[in-house]
Nucleic acid binder design. Structure first.
Length: 425
RNA sequence: GGAGGCGUCGCCUAGUCCGGUCUAUGGCGCCGCACUGCUAAUGCGGUUGGGGCCCUAAGCCCCUCGAGGGUUCAAAUCCCUCCGCCUCCGCCA
């Protein structure tokens, strides 16, 4: 959630942020009104409650007629306190509800606009010229079939559309990618984590996924639990309701977890293969740091993502996502998009967001330093989303005969194997 | 799933039976000051978090004893519901 103090002092900043996102400004004024009603009723409650406590203490000491008089006054006060409390709570409930409707205040550096208004920050490597090499590239579904690595037909039979089996070298490839990613993260000082993929409502609400993204979250009705769409959820909620010593920051975690996404509203999009699926595994980086360090930390997460792309020898570009396309928690977001030969375009493989203090306020995660206690900043970034990485790897490193070259950095994790050989000639 | 025990302001802990200066005790840790060749020890003071009065400071006030309700003039204390942890039993990879 945003800082209420900031909202009171500079409501125009919040309004213009909402505008940049293409989100309504109405809640801003409704929230200001509810907040002011909450404070008025709260102050009234405080005064009455102080008097009530005072009279109550006198009752204990008094006796006889004096006591009866005090009791009468005490009863009146009890009723007035209750009324003021009810008013305060009603206003607070409304304010709480409204504040959750407001997205994070966007970073002024972020490009303003919609999905197509991103700015390209870098292009690294160059797409292969398959025509010059004399063959038409196969897509990952075909390559996966030739290698015996991906089985989408049986995925659909057993679980429905957008499900798959990784088989044989496909399964080995996932384990190798995950191990490569974890090794890199641990080498960079991250604490590796295997978090729960099923979380309770406070954890899911706190990370901000039950707002505009709610329709993409799987919920287990019988148990009132949620399946996480990313390890960001359990890694952010890990320190929920805690006050961290600023000396320990930054805290960096690398979580490996399954990710579940309903993909509502994306019917008909990326229906072929394993580019967009309901379930996949992912290694996610997560940082807790001082708010003033978050911008530098964001660049570091991006650099670690790029390091991983380099190891996989994939051509890609980095984009600065426009304000209208940010998640509600993010103030700024960078995506790394790999070149997908058969789609002839760049597609998102990783994404890193600076959530500033938005997420930590919702989750009540704070830090203590010389200046006192205040919310800290949280950031997240994908290190390796397995199926999309496999798609990029197969398509970019394929050979004319359907075999796939293994990048040098990945070979040790595949028993030194330099080539995934096609089983079907 | 069943039975029992427990949950107090960083950690440990008193208080809960029997409601009222509990305005929550003490210890550890931490911070400041004093004393001291230095350190240690000792002494004194401070030390939950959130909110409001108000923009800051001082100061004052309210809330916070796992969470939420209830009873009462008054709840850490009594009642109800829920959550978590521990022990034992059952079941299970």
């Amino acid at each position: 959630m945003i800082d209420l103090r900031l909202l009171r002092e500079n409501p125009d900043l919040v309004r213009s942020s909402q505008r940049a996102r293409g989100e309504p400004e109405g809640p801003v004024d409704a929230l200001l009104a509810a907040d002011s009603r909450r404070r008025e009723a709260g102050a009234r409650f405080d005064r009455l409650r102080a008097e009530q406590k005072d009279v109550g203490r006198s009752v204990a000491k008094a006796s006889g007629a004096e006591r009866d008089g005090l009791l009468e006054r005490a009863k009146e006060l009890a009723a007035e306190v209750k009324a003021a409390e009810a008013e305060r709570d009603a206003a607070a409930d409304e304010a709480d509800r409204l504040v959750l409707e407001l997205s994070n205040v966007v970073d002024p550096e972020a490009p303003v606009g919609g999905e197509d208004d991103f700015v390209v920050l870098a292009e690294v490597g160059s797409p292969r010229d398959f025509a010059a090499e004399g063959f038409e590239p196969r897509d990952h579904v075909e390559l996966g079939r030739l290698l015996g690595a991906i089985d989408v037909e049986r995925g659909a039979k057993v679980s429905g559309s957008r499900f798959y089996y990784l088989t044989g070298v496909g399964a080995l490839l996932e384990l190798a990618l995950v191990q490569l990613a974890i090794d890199q993260a641990v080498g960079a000082g991250f604490v590796p984590m295997i978090p729960p993929a099923l979380v309770n409502p406070p954890a899911m609400e706190g990370t901000g996924f039950l707002g505009q993204a709610a329709e993409n979250v799987y919920r287990l009705e019988a148990d009132d639990m949620y399946l996480v769409g990313t390890a960001e959820v359990p890694l952010a909620a890990y320190h929920m309701d805690e006050i961290l010593d600023a000396e320990r920051l930054p805290l960096r975690y690398a979580g490996f977890s399954p990710c579940f996404r309903r993909e509502a509203g994306s019917h008909g999009k990326d229906t072929r293969g394993i580019f967009r699926v309901h379930w996949f595994d992912k290694v996610e980086m997560f940082s807790y740091c001082r708010p003033e360090d978050s911008f530098a930390e964001h660049r570091r997460l991006l650099a670690w993502e790029q390091e991983f792309f380099a190891k996989l020898e994939l051509p890609y570009r980095v984009i600065d996502v426009a304000t209208g396309d940010l998640g509600s928690s993010a103030a700024r977001k960078f995506d790394c998009e790999a070149w997908i030969p058969t789609q002839r375009r760049y597609r998102e493989l990783t994404s890193t967001s600076n959530c500033t203090q938005y997420q930590s306020r919702r989750l009540a995660i704070r830090m203590r330093d010389a200046e006192g206690v205040r919310p800290l900043a949280t950031l997240n970034g994908t290190l390796c989303a397995v199926p999309r990485t496999i798609v990029a790897l197969l398509e970019n490193h394929q050979q004319a005969d359907g075999s796939v070259r293994v990048p040098a950095a990945l070979q040790p994790y595949l028993g030194g194997c330099p080539l995934l050989a096609s089983r079907v000639p």
